[in-house]
Measured scan of single mutants.
Amino acid sequence: LIVDEAINEDNSVVSLSQPKMDELQLFRGDTVLLKGKKRREAVCIVLSDDTCSDEKIRMNRVVRNNLRVRLGDVISIQPCP
């Protein structure tokens, strides 16, 4: 998924579009594992966002710094076991 700027300022939340959440079989409030660069990982709570496009994930600056990614970078997402 492509990293995009978050609207809310919550450090533990990322936003996906509802069709993408359905495709990944995620529900609102699920915890997910995000994988960024240099084997960096972060655990976040996923919320749906109608304004977010299907191929993007919204996260704020703190999460991006933790993953060592910038806007427009590609990250992977998976549900936490």
Results as ranks from 00 to 15, higher is better:
residue 1 L to N: 02
residue 1 L to V: 12
residue 1 L to I: 15
residue 2 I to V: 09
residue 2 I to G: 03
residue 3 V to L: 02
residue 3 V to A: 04
residue 3 V to K: 02
residue 4 D to V: 08
residue 4 D to P: 00
residue 4 D to R: 02
residue 4 D to S: 11
residue 4 D to G: 08
residue 4 D to Y: 03
residue 4 D to F: 03
residue 5 E to T: 07
residue 5 E to V: 09
residue 5 E to Y: 14
residue 5 E to G: 10
residue 6 A to G: 13
residue 6 A to Q: 13
residue 7 I to G: 12
residue 7 I to W: 12
residue 7 I to R: 10
residue 8 N to S: 10
residue 8 N to F: 08
residue 8 N to Q: 11
residue 8 N to A: 09
residue 8 N to L: 11
residue 8 N to K: 12
residue 9 E to Y: 06
residue 9 E to W: 08
residue 10 D to W: 05
residue 10 D to Y: 08
residue 11 N to G: 09
residue 11 N to T: 11
residue 11 N to L: 12
residue 11 N to Q: 10
residue 11 N to S: 14
residue 12 S to T: 15
residue 12 S to G: 13
residue 12 S to W: 06
residue 12 S to M: 15
residue 12 S to I: 06
residue 12 S to F: 10
residue 13 V to H: 14
residue 13 V to S: 10
residue 13 V to R: 07
residue 13 V to P: 03
residue 13 V to A: 07
residue 13 V to D: 07
residue 14 V to E: 00
residue 14 V to G: 01
residue 14 V to M: 01
residue 14 V to I: 14
residue 14 V to L: 01
residue 15 S to L: 13
residue 15 S to D: 02
residue 15 S to P: 02
residue 15 S to N: 15
residue 15 S to Y: 12
residue 15 S to I: 12
residue 15 S to V: 15
residue 15 S to E: 13
residue 16 L to R: 01
residue 16 L to A: 02
residue 16 L to Q: 02
residue 16 L to E: 01
residue 16 L to K: 01
residue 17 S to F: 02
residue 17 S to D: 00
residue 17 S to T: 06
residue 17 S to H: 03
residue 18 Q to E: 07
residue 18 Q to T: 06
residue 18 Q to Y: 04
residue 18 Q to G: 10
residue 18 Q to C: 08
residue 18 Q to W: 05
residue 18 Q to H: 14
residue 19 P to D: 07
residue 19 P to T: 11
residue 19 P to E: 15
residue 19 P to S: 14
residue 19 P to K: 04
residue 20 K to I: 12
residue 20 K to P: 00
residue 20 K to C: 08
residue 20 K to G: 01
residue 20 K to A: 12
residue 20 K to T: 08
residue 20 K to V: 12
residue 21 M to R: 01
residue 21 M to T: 01
residue 21 M to K: 01
residue 21 M to H: 00
residue 21 M to V: 01
residue 21 M to I: 07
residue 21 M to W: 01
residue 21 M to L: 14
residue 22 D to I: 07
residue 22 D to Y: 09
residue 22 D to G: 07
residue 22 D to V: 09
residue 22 D to W: 04
residue 23 E to G: 08
residue 23 E to D: 04
residue 23 E to R: 08
residue 25 Q to H: 06
residue 25 Q to Y: 02
residue 25 Q to S: 13
residue 26 L to S: 01
residue 26 L to V: 11
residue 26 L to F: 04
residue 26 L to Q: 01
residue 27 F to A: 14
residue 28 R to I: 09
residue 28 R to V: 13
residue 28 R to D: 14
residue 28 R to Y: 15
residue 28 R to K: 14
residue 28 R to H: 15
residue 29 G to L: 05
residue 29 G to R: 05
residue 30 D to Q: 15
residue 30 D to E: 15
residue 30 D to F: 02
residue 30 D to Y: 01
residue 30 D to R: 04
residue 30 D to G: 07
residue 30 D to I: 02
residue 31 T to K: 15
residue 31 T to C: 04
residue 31 T to F: 05
residue 31 T to R: 14
residue 31 T to S: 11
residue 32 V to W: 00
residue 32 V to P: 00
residue 32 V to D: 03
residue 32 V to G: 02
residue 32 V to I: 11
residue 32 V to S: 01
residue 32 V to H: 01
residue 33 L to D: 02
residue 33 L to I: 04
residue 33 L to A: 09
residue 34 L to K: 01
residue 34 L to G: 03
residue 34 L to T: 02
residue 34 L to N: 01
residue 35 K to D: 03
residue 35 K to M: 11
residue 35 K to L: 09
residue 35 K to E: 07
residue 35 K to R: 12
residue 35 K to Q: 15
residue 36 G to R: 03
residue 36 G to Q: 02
residue 36 G to A: 10
residue 36 G to H: 09
residue 36 G to V: 05
residue 37 K to A: 05
residue 37 K to R: 13
residue 37 K to F: 07
residue 37 K to I: 05
residue 37 K to M: 15
residue 37 K to S: 13
residue 37 K to L: 11
residue 37 K to H: 04
residue 38 K to F: 08
residue 38 K to V: 06
residue 38 K to W: 12
residue 38 K to C: 05
residue 38 K to L: 13
residue 39 R to M: 06
residue 39 R to E: 14
residue 40 R to W: 09
residue 40 R to N: 08
residue 40 R to T: 15
residue 41 E to S: 08
residue 41 E to K: 14
residue 41 E to N: 03
residue 41 E to V: 05
residue 41 E to M: 07
residue 41 E to L: 04
residue 41 E to P: 06
residue 41 E to A: 04
residue 42 A to R: 13
residue 42 A to C: 15
residue 42 A to S: 15
residue 42 A to E: 07
residue 43 V to S: 09
residue 43 V to H: 12
residue 43 V to Y: 15
residue 43 V to R: 15
residue 43 V to W: 13
residue 43 V to F: 12
residue 43 V to N: 05
residue 44 C to E: 02
residue 44 C to A: 11
residue 44 C to R: 07
residue 44 C to V: 11
residue 44 C to T: 09
residue 44 C to M: 15
residue 45 I to S: 11
residue 45 I to H: 08
residue 46 V to F: 02
residue 46 V to N: 01
residue 46 V to C: 09
residue 46 V to M: 03
residue 47 L to P: 01
residue 47 L to E: 14
residue 47 L to N: 13
residue 47 L to M: 15
residue 47 L to I: 10
residue 48 S to L: 13
residue 48 S to R: 11
residue 48 S to V: 12
residue 48 S to G: 12
residue 48 S to F: 03
residue 49 D to S: 14
residue 49 D to M: 01
residue 50 D to E: 11
residue 50 D to R: 09
residue 50 D to P: 07
residue 50 D to T: 10
residue 50 D to C: 09
residue 51 T to Y: 04
residue 51 T to M: 06
residue 51 T to A: 11
residue 51 T to D: 13
residue 52 C to G: 05
residue 52 C to Y: 03
residue 52 C to L: 13
residue 53 S to P: 06
residue 53 S to E: 12
residue 53 S to Y: 13
residue 53 S to C: 10
residue 53 S to W: 05
residue 53 S to K: 11
residue 53 S to N: 14
residue 53 S to M: 08
residue 54 D to I: 07
residue 54 D to G: 08
residue 54 D to W: 04
residue 54 D to R: 05
residue 54 D to Q: 04
residue 55 E to N: 14
residue 55 E to P: 08
residue 55 E to D: 05
residue 55 E to K: 10
residue 56 K to C: 13
residue 56 K to W: 03
residue 56 K to I: 13
residue 56 K to A: 13
residue 57 I to D: 00
residue 57 I to G: 00
residue 57 I to T: 02
residue 57 I to V: 11
residue 58 R to L: 10
residue 58 R to H: 04
residue 58 R to P: 00
residue 58 R to F: 05
residue 58 R to V: 02
residue 58 R to Y: 08
residue 58 R to T: 02
residue 59 M to T: 04
residue 59 M to A: 04
residue 59 M to R: 00
residue 59 M to P: 00
residue 59 M to C: 09
residue 59 M to E: 01
residue 60 N to K: 03
residue 60 N to S: 15
residue 60 N to I: 02
residue 60 N to T: 11
residue 60 N to P: 10
residue 60 N to Q: 04
residue 61 R to T: 12
residue 61 R to N: 08
residue 61 R to V: 12
residue 61 R to M: 05
residue 61 R to P: 12
residue 61 R to I: 11
residue 62 V to S: 14
residue 62 V to L: 12
residue 62 V to E: 12
residue 62 V to C: 13
residue 62 V to Y: 05
residue 63 V to N: 04
residue 63 V to F: 09
residue 63 V to T: 15
residue 64 R to Q: 07
residue 64 R to V: 03
residue 65 N to M: 09
residue 65 N to G: 09
residue 65 N to Q: 08
residue 65 N to P: 00
residue 65 N to W: 06
residue 66 N to A: 09
residue 66 N to C: 03
residue 66 N to L: 12
residue 67 L to W: 00
residue 67 L to Q: 00
residue 67 L to V: 03
residue 68 R to G: 13
residue 68 R to L: 10
residue 68 R to S: 15
residue 69 V to L: 07
residue 69 V to F: 02
residue 70 R to Q: 06
residue 70 R to N: 07
residue 70 R to D: 08
residue 70 R to I: 04
residue 70 R to W: 06
residue 70 R to L: 14
residue 70 R to V: 08
residue 71 L to N: 15
residue 71 L to Q: 10
residue 71 L to E: 15
residue 72 G to A: 04
residue 72 G to Q: 03
residue 72 G to F: 03
residue 72 G to W: 03
residue 73 D to R: 02
residue 73 D to N: 07
residue 73 D to L: 00
residue 73 D to V: 00
residue 73 D to K: 04
residue 73 D to C: 03
residue 74 V to S: 10
residue 74 V to C: 10
residue 74 V to E: 14
residue 74 V to K: 13
residue 75 I to V: 10
residue 75 I to Y: 00
residue 75 I to E: 02
residue 75 I to A: 04
residue 75 I to C: 04
residue 75 I to T: 02
residue 75 I to M: 05
residue 75 I to F: 01
residue 75 I to D: 01
residue 76 S to A: 10
residue 76 S to H: 12
residue 76 S to T: 06
residue 76 S to V: 13
residue 76 S to R: 10
residue 76 S to E: 08
residue 76 S to D: 11
residue 76 S to M: 12
residue 77 I to C: 08
residue 77 I to H: 01
residue 77 I to T: 02
residue 77 I to S: 00
residue 78 Q to C: 07
residue 78 Q to A: 08
residue 78 Q to H: 11
residue 78 Q to F: 03
residue 79 P to G: 08
residue 79 P to W: 04
residue 79 P to C: 08
residue 79 P to A: 13
residue 79 P to L: 10
residue 79 P to T: 07
residue 79 P to F: 12
residue 80 C to L: 13
residue 80 C to M: 14
residue 80 C to S: 15
residue 80 C to G: 14
residue 81 P to N: 15
residue 81 P to L: 03
residue 81 P to T: 11
residue 81 P to Y: 05
residue 81 P to D: 14
